Each structure stands twice: as C-alpha cells, then as structure tokens.
Amino acid sequence: MGETPRHAVVTGGGSGIGLAIARALLDAGHAVTIMGRDQAKLEAALPDARAIMCDVADPADVERAFAAAVVASGPVAILVNNAGVAPSAPFARTSTADWRQCLDVNLMGAVHAIQQVIGPMQVLDGGRIINIASTAALKGYAYVTAYTASKHALLGLTRSLALENSGDKLTINAICPGFADTDIIRTSVARIVAKTGRSEAEALATFTAANPQQRLIDPDEVAGTVLWLVSDAARSVTGQAIAIAGGEVM
C-alpha cells in the first residue's frame, strides 16, 4: 500500500510537525490535503498540497472538508490526525473551557476525522490512520492535566480501533513525540525568558531536561516515522504507541 501513491489528509498541517509530515508525504509522491483553521496560512505553508480550511472540533465542518477533499483527490487512504491544542495552567486554574477545548480538539477532532474515512478505508487495499499523540499519552506532566488526559484518551481510541479493524488491512497507530523543535516551543522559550530573565539556554532546558538525549525532537523525525507506518513494511504494525522521545519513555 505504502509504495503506491495515495490520497493523504493531514490535519493541523500548516505548521510544525503537521507541516513536516505533509511535506514528507508529498515528497514521497502522495496526493496531500492539509487542513487547518487558517486558509491563507495553509496555502502559504505548502503550495503544492491542497489546502482546505477546517475546524476539527466541529463535526459538520469536518464532514464538509473531507467531502471536498474526496471530490478533489479521491478516497482518503492515509489520515494523520495532528491538529491539537495544549493550554498550560495548574489544575486549580484550568477552566472548564480549557478542558472542553482539549477534549474537543485533541480527542473529538480525531474522532470526527476518523468517522469520515474509516468506512471507505475498509474497502481499500489497505489504509492508514496515524494519530499524533505525545509522550503525554504515556506519562503524566504537571500543569497540563487537560492536555495529558486528552492524549491518554487519544491513545485509548487508537488501541481500541486497531482491534476493531484488525481484519481489514487497515492499521491504526499513534506516534508519541516528546517536546519538538516547533514554533510553539520557541514561543514558550521566549515567554520564559521575558518573564523570568533566565537565558535562552536555561529556558530551553525546561523542555529538554526530560529527554535523556538532552535535545528537542526534530519534526522530520516524526515525519520519517509516518512514512514508515504508511509503507508496506509496516503492514503488521497496528495499535502501537511509538515514542520519539530520546528514551524519555520506554
């Protein structure tokens, strides 16, 4: 399946890990649709991909976006659920709205997208669903309880769906990166520097300290894992949580 060009959809494909994944799939010859909430940003990020604006938290909008993608590029054979949010606050100051946003985007956003593709995928000669989770799907982190809970739920979804579809030549996996070298982390580092007066290196250590390799994950490392998972070489890999975290979790 993976060696034949297919239609791939990447949510949250306009920046960071999602963009790296979309670019890698495009370079591998797949027809790529990227989805996000900012049409202009999507079009500028990867001009050779098809860009469709979509709010994954809105099931009606997801249905519209995927219908448009299928009309333009054919059935979706590869789905990468990458869209996500990560509000940070102590539990006592995490609002109900923060909880709802994490669950609506990080969990239900994937559910809505999967609902649009899983039926048609079952009649394809193989299909791939890849949920971009996080090491927060495998362990706890302080000050991001809502995010961590939503990523644990996303991993549970991955494992259950993999079992339900084990006889359909369809694989469903999760990739769990540690802190990655993205604009989100760089913005967080700048915010720590501004608030605390710590050096950039000291602020960056806030994110690299948990990684035994003492570095941020390169988004291209995640993209490379996606390319393997969509290839025929990974046709027996399903229901897995693949950590890309320098040994932070084992």
Rank of each mutant, 00 (worst) to 15 (best):
T196L: 13
G119Y: 03
A44E: 10
P90G: 05
R6D: 09
A97S: 14
T206S: 14
D48V: 14
K195L: 10
R100S: 09
A97N: 13
G84L: 00
S95H: 06
L107A: 02
C102E: 00
A241R: 08
A69H: 01
E63N: 00
A86F: 15
D48L: 15
R159M: 14
P75V: 10
V249W: 15
A60Q: 13
A69M: 02
S166V: 13
R100Q: 10
T148R: 00
H30R: 03
S134M: 03
W99P: 06
Q116E: 00
V70E: 04
V9W: 01
A92W: 11
G74L: 05
V144T: 04
G29S: 05
G13E: 03
I17T: 14
I118W: 08
E248L: 12
A245I: 11
I184N: 06
A245Q: 11
I129T: 02
I192H: 10
S73I: 04
G178D: 13
A57M: 01
D232E: 11
C176L: 09
V32E: 00
A31H: 11
E202Q: 11
M53I: 05
Q115F: 04
A22F: 06
A142K: 08
R93G: 12
A69S: 08
N82W: 05
K195G: 09
L124K: 02
I34W: 03
A22W: 03
E200M: 07
D220R: 15
W228P: 07
R37D: 06
A241I: 09
